[in-house]
Design a protein around this nucleic acid. Structure first.
Lengths: 131, 131
DNA sequence: TTGTGTGCAAACAGTTTGCATTCGT
DNA sequence: ACGAATGCAAACTGTTTGCACACAA
């Protein structure tokens, strides 16, 4: 129940060649440059299904969502460079336990949380105006 | 440079009477019910300026932003009930220090972060289908 | 008076969706 | 052949903005 269409392959393959977060529109443009014509709506639909399947990670930015192939299975967090987008997947953080603890103290259950770190990576901090 | 107009007073006063997060549109409706006619655009503009001033807190939800008067000055986090919106302001979390530490380990600087906890408050967990 | 604040409606951006068509299986 | 996937364009949603007018200072 998941057909391997030209478009789906193109999107997946593109994502695998990238290692930082990109918006649906950026991916759409990148595909066009590669000569692969895929409708924007299809890019959205594909990303959606990949995200649902847990194959890609979604980062909700201020005004748009960005996506990235993720290797880690399960819950994890990110450290993202706000200049170049370089991303580090953080693991082994005991945020879950800690969050559950705090929540319980306030009588809350079924705790969930969002946590993302943003900053300037060494490279961008050193050369503010380069790629 | 910050005029006290009827509208600004209405919005501020309304916010002060509430203790959980509301969207701009909800606030707009509430004002109308109170008989206070304030344009939606004005509500947005007012919330914007209050947020800039650090008087209200903004919580970026999936699809919309919600606002709330905040007493705490400075950076803090929230524990929000996803059923009723009840909110607890968390303080004394050493997230900042911790985040900076993690980031530094990866060569990142000027670290910033987002962290919010969501769950079901005692009341909502007990009575799933009430107010 | 003066220019910030307001209201309205139009503009916007990102995302979603309806529907006829294409194409994997 | 059958129904899921696509493309296009139109619809949607929350939010922003241009502009003429109102009003706090």
């Amino acid at each position: 129940m998941q057909r391997m269409t030209r478009q789906r392959i193109a999107v997946t393959s593109l994502m695998e060649s990238l290692d930082d977060f990109r918006s649906a529109q950026q991916l759409h443009d990148a595909l066009r440059e590669r000569g692969e014509n895929v409708g924007l709506a299809t890019v959205y639909r594909t990303l959606q299904s990949l995200a649902d399947a847990g194959v890609v990670d979604v980062l909700r930015l201020e005004d748009e969502n960005v996506f990235r192939m993720c290797s880690r299975s399960g819950h994890h967090h990110h450290l993202v460079c706000r200049a170049c987008g370089r991303t580090v997947e953080l693991t082994g953080l005991d945020v879950e336990k800690w969050a559950k603890q705090i929540a319980r103290e306030h009588g809350f259950e079924e705790v969930d949380h969002t946590l993302e770190l943003f900053g300037l990576c060494a490279q961008c901090a050193a050369a503010p105006n380069e790629a």
